[in-house]
Every structure is written in C-alpha cells, then in structure tokens.
C-alpha cells in the first residue's frame, strides 16, 4: 500500500518531532510512508474563519498532492476532519478533484487501529498521563464516545493504543472531553474565553494528578502548551505519536537546539 504522510504546517515549522515520530510509529508496523513535498495546508484555518474562497484552492492543492496514494495519514485529527467532513461541500463536483476519495485520509491512531488492525504498541511509558481529547477527533471523526451522547459504543483507538503501553496510567478527568478553547480563530478572536477554557482544562489535569499532557491534536497542544509555559508548570506536552514512538522524555515544548 502506498501511504503518504500529511504534516500540518504548524507541525512542520514548530514541532517537527511529532511528524518524525509519526513516521517511526508507522515504520514499526512495516509501513514506509512517503512525504510528498508539494503539500502545504489542508485549508482548515481559512474555512473555519468563514473564508471558503480562501480555503478552496488549498483543498484542490491537497487533493492533487495526494491523488496517487492509497492512504494519507496525518498526526492531526482536526486536519483529517477538515478533509473528510468538509472537502465534499467545499469542492463540490470540482472536476480537478473528482475522484479524490477523502475516506482514505486518516488520523494516525485511527489508521493503526482500523486499517492496520493494530491493537497494541510495544513500549513503556510509566507515567501519569493527562489525555486531552480533541473535539474534532471525538465529534467529527468519531474517535471515542462524546460524553453528551451517553450511549456511544465506538472504539477509542487513541486511548486504547496508549493504554497498551507498559506502565502507563491515564488519569480520570472531571470533564473528560471538554474543549480546550483553541478553536482556530477563536483562540485570538475570543482570547479571554480561549484562555479561560484552556486554564480550566489544566486545572482539571492538575487535580487528576497528570504529570504529562498528551493529545492527538497539535493545535490543542500548541494552545495548552502555551498556557502551561506561562503558568510555569513543569509538564511536558507530547503528541500521541511521540509517546507511541517512545521518544525521550522529559522534555518541555519543542525548542530544538534553541
């Protein structure tokens, strides 16, 4: 199978370790993913801000860049949700992108679980983990069961794969799937609410005894990590891929060689 890696622009520039970890996790399962260099952005920031005209060319570019792959894997649930849930509406029957099957774009843990059938990852992570459940992965991709839905029975690949690591303990939060407050343009358009919501999440993790914050969404990590640094908490902020790849810890926000 031909698998391509999609790396969100933020990850490419600010947290490349998450993308390298993604490659390693895939390689450990025998998948050599390639990285088409033409890729840029999935268009979510513009679309989310109500600028579909600005997002459309990016969606077309994405479809062209990844046209020849069987699967596209990204370490970002929100980017994958953008493609799978909103590209059809954005692109319509655009002839340039006809035939691009958005169903083959996957978040990393989703890919491992559903396509490769992986149920456990070899490795150790003997720490108390605060798992932040991102809203896009949860409610748009169905990775797990939203607390308000009460009767969900979907598998939760992110949690299950983490739990398979030896020694890991995922702490119990008071609000297991409350939004962190990033929300794209919301983060700067409603800065007070964004910060309040983020700080409330951190207080929940602290009360639950987390030592490290983990999420499958780099944008949530960017936001929470930024708050953590200002609060001078000594919590490492790690992407799920980094935990599964066994990357060295402890390490605070990704500042390579700075």
């Amino acid at each position: 199978m031909r698998v391509a890696l999609f790396v969100p622009c933020f990850v490419d520039q600010f947290a490349p370790g998450m993308a390298r970890a993604t490659l390693e996790v895939l390689a450990a399962q025998g998948v050599e993913a390639s990285y088409p260099r033409n890729q840029t952005c999935c268009g979510q920031p513009a679309w989310n801000a109500g600028l579909p005209d600005a997002a459309r060319p990016l969606a077309r570019h994405f479809a062209r860049t990844f046209a020849d792959f069987d699967y596209v894997v990204a370490p970002s649930a929100s980017c994958v949700a953008m493609v799978r849930r909103h590209y059809a509406g954005l692109l319509g029957r655009d002839s340039g992108s006809e035939g691009f099957d958005t169903a083959r774009v996957f978040e990393l843990c989703e890919f491992l679980w559903e396509v490769l059938g992986v149920r456990e990852i070899e490795g150790r992570f003997p720490h108390r983990v605060g798992l932040h459940v991102g809203c896009h992965g949860l409610r748009e991709l169905g990775l797990g069961n939203a607390s308000e839905r009460i009767r969900g029975r979907r598998p939760d690949p992110i949690r299950r794969l983490l739990e398979s690591l030896a020694g890991i303990e995922i702490v119990d939060l008071a609000r297991p799937d409350e939004c962190c407050g990033f929300g794209g343009t919301f983060a700067v358009g409603e800065p007070e609410m964004s910060a309040q919501m983020g700080r409330a999440r951190l207080a929940d993790h602290a009360a639950a005894g987390a030592e490290v914050l983990v999420s499958a969404d780099p944008s949530c990590l960017l936001h929470l990590g930024g708050l953590i640094e200002r609060q001078a908490r000594a919590w490492p902020v790690l992407h799920v891929a980094e935990v599964l790849a066994g990357h060295a810890w402890p390490r605070s926000q990704e500042v390579e060689g700075a």
Binding site: V7, D12, P16, A19, A195, G198, G226, E229, V255
Partner: peptide
C-alpha cells in the same frame, strides 16, 4: 497575552 509563542524548530520537518 496568555500564552507563550512557540519557537520555530531549528530544522523543519521538510
């Protein structure tokens, strides 16, 4: 105002 800015990594993934 409330969050630290991320620093660009020395070497991008690209």
């Amino acid at each position: 105002r409330d969050r630290a800015l991320p620093q660009a990594a020395r070497e991008s993934f690209r």
